[in-house]
Amino acid sequence: MAAGGDHGSPDSYRSPLASRYASPEMCFVFSDRYKFRTWRQLWLWLAEAEQTLGLPITDEQIQEMKSNLENIDFKMAAEEEKRLRHDVMAHVHTFGHCCPKAAGIIHLGATSCYVGDNTDLIILRNALDLLLPKLARVISRLADFAKERASLPTLGFTHFQPAQLTTVGKRCCLWIQDLCMDLQNLKRVRDDLRFRGVKGTTGTQASFLQLFEGDDHKVEQLDKMVTEKAGFKRAFIITGQTYTRKVDIEVLSVLASLGASVHKICTDIRLLANLKEMEEPFEKQQIGSSAMPYKRNPMRSERCCSLARHLMTLVMDPLQTASVQWFERTLDDSANRRICLAEAFLTADTILNTLQNISEGLVVYPKVIERRIRQELPFMATENIIMAMVKAGGSRQDCHEKIRVLSQQAASVVKQEGGDNDLIERIQVDAYFSPIHSQLDHLLDPSSFTGRASQQVQRFLEEEVYPLLKPYESVMKVKAELCL
């Protein structure tokens, strides 16, 4: 049975990233139509530049190519590739079939990587351009969430054990800070992308030097003109047959890092959902379990974690691919890159769409948070109580021993009897502590235990987050809708 299948058929496997999760716009960027249309555009740009620099290419040939950029006979191309065992030459023939007058000058002087690699770089750039505003929107939604809850005390956790208090907004800023680093890295790697350009079979530009009869300047002009037509500021000066596969490492490393950030955020949300302090959106008709109707599973956060793990592992592909590119190139890269580049971007696209949807509907339960604080705060307040007693004339050592005994009794009630923490009640009825009984409410005010959390939130948002989001103001209103 021949390899390949009808990918629109229910009898043929289709990647869930495309069929179930990723956005239509990201799927289109990695589609065959987008790819092969870009090949034709690159052939047109090459012909236009070659004509401008004096090669015998007519206006009629150029116009014929322009008129057929979208006229792609995919069936013919597939048949040609089956016959020739070469995808680029299959599309040269297919393009030439609908451009008979231009057929002889299509791909003039070029090698397969002229269309293959340059198209990949265009796709990487455009895919990054799709991700950047999506990530900015996630940051914006979380920034709104953090600002609104900047002063809401909550129990902090280290080692997932109760620690000092923080605020809900401050905790959210930990998430935002990681995503801001990801946004900066995505922008950097996007701006650092260079075009492969017009380089020939081993990167020496020998074929173009021959076409222009040894004119170095025209060869350099050709490279520059096509690079500018493709919208790049610069091209690699040095290439082998391909652009260095280190570029793929750079791009997928940034995406993998984004995956790590999203995994951490969504894990926190899942843990908070278990504590009943916070939940992701839950639709009115949504079913959490087929057997347990009360369940409210954090399905979206779980999906993000599941896909983020996949995204983090994909960076190993370009690392290994770059390491086995012998001399000017081997074909070890080809099949692998067809999979890992598309999957990385479709996965990143999915987790950003999902995280935006989550961040637009996060639900906080202040009463649950308050109750958990009441359970733990008495123990945390013991040092403040000791200091207040010393100020009232008591002995630190005597007070410490009193607190120690009462704390152990209260802990026994919590752990052995399943009761509430009654340390404060014990202190309130103990005559030894009568000098500070009137101060206990103040000493137990949760806001006095959150330090500068709310001020940190305000400063972080104003100095770091809002300036970073400013270039994306025009796209901030787009909502994230999930079908599944």
Results as ranks from 00 to 15, higher is better:
341 L>D: 11
409 Q>M: 10
117 D>R: 01
84 L>A: 09
27 C>P: 09
86 H>M: 01
352 L>Q: 05
392 A>K: 14
97 H>C: 10
227 T>M: 07
256 A>G: 13
137 R>Y: 02
102 A>H: 02
81 E>Q: 09
107 H>M: 01
350 T>I: 14
208 F>E: 03
68 N>R: 08
284 K>V: 12
246 K>G: 03
343 E>P: 10
34 Y>W: 10
291 A>V: 02
379 F>N: 00
208 F>C: 08
282 F>N: 12
301 S>T: 14
70 E>M: 15
24 P>D: 13
358 I>V: 09
256 A>I: 06
344 A>I: 06
361 G>E: 15
459 R>F: 09
31 S>Q: 09
279 E>R: 01
57 I>A: 04
359 S>N: 10
120 D>Q: 00
446 P>W: 08
13 Y>R: 09
174 L>W: 15
393 G>N: 08
53 L>N: 06
172 C>F: 01
335 A>L: 02
430 D>W: 05
423 L>C: 02
165 L>D: 00
95 F>V: 07
189 V>L: 08
170 K>E: 01
428 Q>A: 08
230 A>Y: 01
400 H>Y: 06
253 S>P: 02
369 I>L: 08
387 M>E: 06
277 E>I: 00
318 P>E: 02
200 G>V: 02
16 P>L: 12
367 K>Y: 06
41 Q>I: 10
184 Q>V: 14
26 M>W: 01
208 F>V: 04
33 R>F: 09
262 V>R: 02
387 M>R: 01
179 L>K: 00
232 F>Y: 07
261 S>N: 03
227 T>W: 07
30 F>E: 02
11 D>N: 13
71 N>Y: 11
261 S>K: 01
196 R>F: 04
253 S>A: 13
351 I>W: 03
421 N>R: 07
34 Y>I: 01
398 D>E: 13
315 V>C: 10
360 E>Y: 05
41 Q>F: 13
276 K>W: 07
27 C>R: 15
439 Q>M: 14
2 A>S: 13
322 A>Q: 13
142 L>P: 05
110 A>H: 02
190 R>C: 09
39 W>T: 08
120 D>N: 07
373 I>T: 07
196 R>V: 07
355 L>E: 01
442 H>L: 12
252 L>I: 13
295 K>E: 03
73 D>I: 05
51 Q>C: 06
49 A>I: 04
115 V>Q: 03
203 G>N: 01
254 V>L: 10
423 L>W: 03
86 H>K: 00
182 D>Y: 05
187 K>F: 08
14 R>L: 15
15 S>L: 14
185 N>G: 13
420 D>G: 03
102 A>Y: 00
483 C>R: 14
81 E>M: 01
128 L>V: 11
122 I>Y: 13
